[in-house]
């Protein structure tokens, strides 16, 4: 009576041990696989969030995902001390590389030194850190070229005008390399016209300040013929001022004031489509994002890379911007 029952128990035991063996094998194999192919993690230290930065970060994340990398993103909200602490935390987490868009170079240099000591390669993106001893590479927009392209188009529109031609230049922030370089490029292009007087006003990238500066400039110089905005997000503010002064004439109309800018936001796109603005230089954020990740990958592999990598933007005018909508990161 007991024999068949004993046999059944033996069978169950065999089955259980078989299942346990399979489970254990699977567990061991998964552990050994994860140990062998450790996922590469990239620390992304962001200065603060605004439209173009979000687009740039998204491009980085997409490029990282394609390579199977994990991205740990930290945002400093414009506070250099916070960014310093965030970079230190990325070092403690032993990320494989750090991509940083710095709030302030001097404040974060110490944290970047820690990264260097921990042999974590650091890549500056969007904002160069020219005096840093820790950054392995920089990738960002070619701001001199971007400013130059916007200025070149403007110069072509103004070249037939005789006598003194006043141009308003809305600068970015005076301590921001991208803003400085855009201004350099723009001024270089406008130098082609000897009769141009450039009135430069700082705006700290702030549209409210750009609005006030444009109002004030037109009060002092009512005959301004053209406006360059270091960022095209300020074009709606310019439109407010010119509308109030009854000077918001579209491209091709009499009395039209030439307006160009750099960036590629929907503000710039919409203004160019409507004909209020003549054109904008669109930054190639997708390319910048991809290059950042490729540089990180190369440095992690121990390869040497170029130190300074810039990506020029593309100018689109009122005539061709709609057909190129797909290439404009902010257009919607």
């Amino acid at each position: 009576m007991l024999r068949p029952f004993k046999g059944k128990v033996m069978n169950i035991k065999k089955r259980i041990s078989g299942v346990l063996f399979v489970v254990a094998t699977l567990l061991l194999s998964s552990v050994s696989t994860s140990a062998l192919a450790k996922k590469i993690r990239i620390g992304l230290a962001v200065d603060q969030l605004f439209e173009s930065r979000v687009a740039e970060n998204n491009a980085i994340k997409v490029a990282a995902e394609k390579l199977g990398f994990e991205v740990i993103e930290v945002v400093a909200d414009g506070d250099a001390q916070t960014q310093n602490a965030q970079i230190q935390s990325l070092v403690v987490q032993r990320v494989d590389a750090i991509l940083v868009c710095a709030v302030d170079q001097n404040t974060i240099e110490r944290a970047l030194m820690r990264a260097k000591r921990a042999r974590i390669p650091v890549i500056a993106y969007d904002r160069a850190l020219p005096d840093s001893r820790t950054v392995a590479a920089f990738v960002g927009p070619d701001s001199i070229s971007d400013g130059f392209e916007a200025g070149k188009y403007m110069a072509e529109q103004l070249k037939g005008i005789e006598g003194k031609v006043q141009v308003l230049e809305l600068l970015g922030a005076l301590n921001d390399q991208n803003g400085i370089d855009r201004s350099k490029g723009f001024n270089k292009a406008l130098n082609a016209l000897p009769n141009v007087e450039i009135i430069s006003v700082p705006t700290d990238w702030d549209s409210a300040k750009a609005l006030a500066a444009t109002e004030n400039a037109f009060q002092a110089n009512p005959n301004i013929k053209a406006i360059f905005a270091a960022t095209d997000t300020q074009i709606p503010a310019i439109e407010t001022v010119l509308s109030n002064l009854n000077k918001a004439h579209k491209v091709g109309q009499d009395g039209h004031i030439v307006v160009t800018g750099v960036n590629g936001s929907n503000d710039g796109y919409a203004a160019t489509v409507s004909g209020f603005a003549d054109g904008i230089v669109v930054m190639d954020l997708t390319n910048i994002g991809e290059k950042s990740v490729q540089l990180a990958a190369a440095l992690i592999r121990g390869e040497s890379v170029g130190k300074h990598n810039v990506v020029p933007g593309q100018f689109y005018s009122h005539d061709n911007i709609v057909e190129n909508k797909a290439d404009i990161w902010g257009a919607n």
Partner: peptide, 10 residues
């Protein structure tokens, strides 16, 4: 209303 829209640095 004056700036023409919302921007994240406002």
């Amino acid at each position: 209303a004056r700036v023409g829209g919302l921007q994240s640095d406002i």
